[in-house]
Simulated assay, not measured.
Amino acid sequence: MPRRDPDAVRAPKFSARDRLAFLLALVPWLMDHERVTVDEAAAHFDVDADLVRESVELIAVSGVPGDTSSYQHGDLFDIAWDAFEDRGEIVLTNLVAIDDAPRFSAREAAALIAGLQYLSSLPETADSAAIATLMGKLSRGASGPVAPVGVAGEATDGRLATIRDAVSRGVQLELDYLNSRGEHERRRVDPLRIDSNDTDWYLRGWCHLRQAVRTFRLDRMSDVVVTDRPIEHRVDEVALPDKLFEGATTELVVTLDVASAAVPLLDDYIPDGAPRSTHGDLVRLELPISHLDVLKRLVAGMPGVATVVGPPEARAAVEAWAQAALERYSVD
């Protein structure tokens, strides 16, 4: 082993707990990088090179005893000693117990990678090196080959970046909005906050046309323009409700029978304290809606688990909508 200069300046001594934490971080890092120098490892962890050398030497005499309860050669970590002593390179040549650790299945790793790809598509996490590194580790560390996964970008990605820019700068937006009645309106909005519900994105802001806080779905927006006008209502000056969806002042209250397992899908739409009762596997609840078109889309999205009980005009509207849909399948 090369002799070290006893007069060399040393880094502050690590406690036993610090050394253990460093070793636990060093081993998987060395496995990921296959061949690195002592100086590269020291720079990555921001520690003294002597600490890296001492830790690598300790790793090389660490392991798990085999069936004989004594340490044999294959029961210890090992390194390429010539490369380590002559060129200061660290190469692990034998790993112990690492391969016995629990691993994600290929399907679990693919699901996590898909989620990370979705995160990497968002403006605030785009081009994140940490996400790319984590996806690589998941691919290599799964118990089997991971199927290639690709998450397509949403059509709203460009609008989302534009709106985030307006929120961060505190300036107004102008946009065309398709409301629940199918009508296009030009709106001027003070953007306050962006929220998501599953895969749908929403802007919450002060609408100058309605003179109130409103929630806008991004996929119903078009011709979004960021202006130079500062917002007139700030997030700390208006009351943003905890729930994403709030009922309008002119509401139609609809009574629904919903399968109990599907009730959580409606929680964001049900006002606090709204009456509900249980009848076997069904929950009867009251839901305020702004327009019957909203009810049609809601029932269409919950086929077989939601039934309109009343009022009569709501039942008639849903029935007529369903009948019109069936007629499209008829053949002349």
Results as ranks from 00 to 15, higher is better:
residue 89 E to I: 06
residue 124 E to V: 10
residue 90 I to H: 03
residue 29 W to A: 08
residue 16 A to E: 10
residue 332 D to Y: 07
residue 19 R to F: 08
residue 204 R to S: 03
residue 265 L to E: 15
residue 3 R to Q: 14
residue 231 I to N: 00
residue 119 L to T: 04
residue 217 R to C: 00
residue 160 L to A: 13
residue 308 V to R: 00
residue 307 T to F: 04
residue 124 E to F: 08
residue 182 G to D: 13
residue 56 V to R: 06
residue 126 A to T: 09
residue 305 V to G: 06
residue 50 D to A: 15
residue 210 R to N: 07
residue 130 A to G: 07
residue 252 L to I: 14
residue 85 E to F: 14
residue 2 P to Q: 13
residue 263 V to R: 02
residue 114 A to L: 05
residue 156 T to Q: 07
residue 74 G to N: 12
residue 285 L to P: 08
residue 28 P to C: 07
residue 150 G to I: 10
residue 219 D to A: 07
residue 85 E to G: 02
residue 318 V to R: 00
residue 179 N to S: 07
residue 292 L to W: 09
residue 23 L to Q: 14
residue 63 G to S: 01
residue 56 V to L: 05
residue 82 D to Y: 02
residue 158 G to F: 14
residue 230 P to V: 04
residue 49 A to Y: 05
residue 105 S to Q: 08
residue 149 V to T: 15
residue 156 T to V: 13
residue 306 A to H: 03
residue 203 L to A: 01
residue 252 L to N: 03
residue 256 L to K: 01
residue 266 L to Q: 06
residue 255 T to K: 05
residue 76 L to T: 03
residue 141 G to D: 04
residue 234 R to G: 08
residue 288 P to Y: 03
residue 37 T to E: 07
residue 324 A to T: 15
residue 72 Q to R: 11
residue 137 K to Q: 09
residue 236 D to Y: 04
residue 213 V to Y: 00
residue 196 S to G: 10
residue 148 P to G: 05
residue 159 R to M: 12
residue 263 V to T: 02
